[in-house]
Nucleic acid binder design. Structure first.
Length: 552
RNA sequence: GCGCCCAUAGCUCAAUCGGAUAGAGCGACAGCCUUCUAAGCUGUAGGUUUCAGGUUCGAUUCCUGAUGGGCGUACCA
């Protein structure tokens, strides 16, 4: 018996509504918060009673009569509150679901809602002008989890990094490297006022000095730019690597120039009368293109110097991504980019492209706190606390978890002291501990019951304690949790769910002795439940991007 | 000024498409280890969901306004 209980119930209620005169009934099913309200509740009576001029509770009764309960899967039904229909599902349904979990293992929770579709997610995309710092952490972690989440719903996912090694910022890096290099020979040589102050620039300069001594003092900017770029990019990739992130594509902005896509886009704007010249620059009529026209000013897309501003290549880039034919395109930015992406989307829409496939995730800023006080971890200071430092300090799992545990559109307070804590206070360990605990039991079981792994049929009906039933009910919800999290691109929903799963497991463990040499049949059933719990936790960890330790 | 985001327990945050008695963790207090991992479990205390209206059978959720905070408002990205 493998069936989707929600679909079963939904169809049944729809039929009941049809026979009561509702032509195209929409049925919304929910899981009540209170277990006393059953396993599934339906608000159809309240939704339709008014249209029919009937009392909701009385109408609920009519629906109930049409349902002909109890049946094989629904053991009990009741009407409660203002007119909810509450249904109680047979334990048998849940216990047999365990078989499904244990068979699917690492695939339990994988959906095929989007199989055959492709998605592209572009994130991090920091310019190679420095190391990744803690401010990059949130989007780095979010992108990692969201990419996983999309894969779990069936998408074939391309992970992409937009790489910009041209422009003013890079020149600035070149000048900064040059100044540091020259200072090695002339300590009084001035450092550019807005140069990159980080120590890493000195490190780059030192490498150049070691290789070339002072022979580069009159050398072209290019050599300093390249040295800087290479060093920074290597550093960024190293950080991503230690975070377990691997991009499939590093899309170099310069290719947009080389292939003529920038000029092409610009010409198209001109042709459509969406741009004009003023003060030597080319302006885009963003005030007309933006949907929210209030106070929207036109923006420069080509500076008086002839160089495009970031907007133009960004638009050409998104057009390129659209043309690649993905079903879904995701960008992740911090709140400081909140306005600019709208200009980019408005621009490409102005050129006739459909931007509805592009979903932009804007996450709010992160404050690092220690002992209740904000801690500065900015890039401006000479001694920078990098993302690498953070990972080294608290570990990749904790870093990933803390950045992903809150909804992206709310400000994140990152408690660095709590994150450092290798104890029960740390919410990551609560989850991982549950996993390690299960692994330990399974190891013990292998010794005590050598025949467990080859056991034939399992008597799941022995899983009849409230804790066991409650745990199973939570485990069964994993696939729909994945669907819900993916639908809104919110991986924190997985964490909220995993907390509930872990909590239920710990309670089960505490009240139900798993291994009992005197009660083999019961032990086997409970071990199967443990395995299922382990699978769900592990799969959830895979999505949010943390490890599943077997020992702690 | 204008735009976007946010406001929920002492603190950090959840809350299913608008659902029933708003939930966790931390902190506080009180219990549970001669049994499979106590990084665990159990209990107590803690709320006018910032405020004022509106829509609805029903609002933390949607709408309007106010207040407070974050981020933008570049010929930087």
């Amino acid at each position: 018996m493998i069936l989707d209980i929600k679909q079963y119930v939904s169809e049944k209620i729809k039929n009941a509504l049809r026979s009561l005169g509702i032509h195209e009934p929409a049925v919304i099913l929910e899981r009540p918060k209170d277990p006393l309200h059953g396993d599934i509740s339906c608000n159809a009576a309240m939704m339709y009673a008014k249209k029919l001029g009937r009392n909701p509770k009385e109408f609920a009764q009519s629906i109930l009569e049409q349902l002909a309960l109890p049946d094989e899967f629904i053991t009990k039904a009741s009407i409660a509150g203002p007119g909810f229909i509450n249904l109680f599902i047979a334990d048998k349904y849940y216990t047999e679901k365990l078989t499904e979990i244990n068979e699917l293992k690492g695939n339990f929770g994988r959906l095929n809602d989007n199989s055959g579709k492709t998605a592209d997610i572009e994130w991090v995309s920091a310019n190679p002008t420095g190391e990744l710092h803690t401010g990059h952490g949130r989007q780095t972690a979010l992108g990692k989890a969201i990419a996983n989440l999309l894969e779990w719903t069936g998408y074939k996912v391309t992970r992409e990094y937009y790489y910009n090694n041209a422009g003013k910022q890079m020149e600035n890096l070149a000048k900064s490297v040059y100044a540091r290099y020259r200072q090695l020979f002339e300590p009084d040589y001035p450092f550019p006022e807005d140069g990159y102050a980080g120590d890493y620039v000195k490190e780059i300069a030192a490498i150049l000095a070691k290789e070339h001594d002072d022979k580069l003092i009159d050398a072209d900017d290019k050599i300093f730019r390249e040295a800087g770029e290479n060093w920074c990019f290597k550093s960024i990739r190293h950080t991503l690597d230690s975070f377990g992130i691997h991009h499939d594509i590093f899309f170099n902005e310069s290719t947009l120039y080389e292939t003529g896509k920038i000029t092409e886009t610009l010409e198209e704007f001109k042709k459509r009368g969406l741009s004009y010249e003023k003060d030597g620059a080319i302006w885009l009529k963003t005030s007309e293109l933006l949907k929210n026209k209030k106070d929207a000013a036109d923006k420069v897309i080509v500076k008086a110097t002839g160089e495009p501003t970031y907007r133009l290549p960004d638009m050409a880039y998104h057009i390129d991504k659209l043309k690649r034919g993905y079903d879904l395109i995701i960008d992740i930015f911090g709140a400081d980019h909140g306005d600019t992406y709208k200009e980019v989307l408005a621009g490409i829409e102005g050129l006739g492209y459909d931007s509805s496939k592009i979903k932009v995730i804007i996450h709010q800023m992160v404050t690092f706190v220690q002992d209740g006080k904000p801690v500065k971890m900015s890039k401006r200071a000479d001694n920078v606390y990098t993302l690498d430092d953070l990972i080294e300090d608290i570990g990749a799992d904790v870093t990933q978890f803390f950045f992903v545990m809150r909804s992206a559109n709310t400000h994140l307070e990152f408690d660095i002291a709590l994150a450092r804590e290798q104890s029960d206070k740390n919410p990551v360990f609560y989850l991982q501990y549950a996993h390690a605990r299960i692994c330990s039991i399974l190891r013990n079981a292998a010794e005590i019951f050598p025949d467990y792994s080859s056991a034939g049929s399992i008597n799941y009906s022995l899983l009849d304690t409230p804790e066991a039933i409650s745990l199973i009910k939570v485990l069964v919800l994993f696939p729909e949790t994945v669907a819900a999290a993916a639908a809104t691109l919110e991986p924190h929903k997985i964490i909220t769910y995993l907390n509930e799963a872990a909590e239920n497991y710990h309670r089960f463990y505490h009240n139900n002795r798993v291994i009992d040499a005197e009660a083999k049949e019961l032990s086997f059933a409970r071990l199967k439940l443990c395995e299922a719990a382990r699978i769900v936790l592990k799969n959830g960890f895979d999505i949010i991007g943390i490890s599943a330790p077997e020992r702690m």
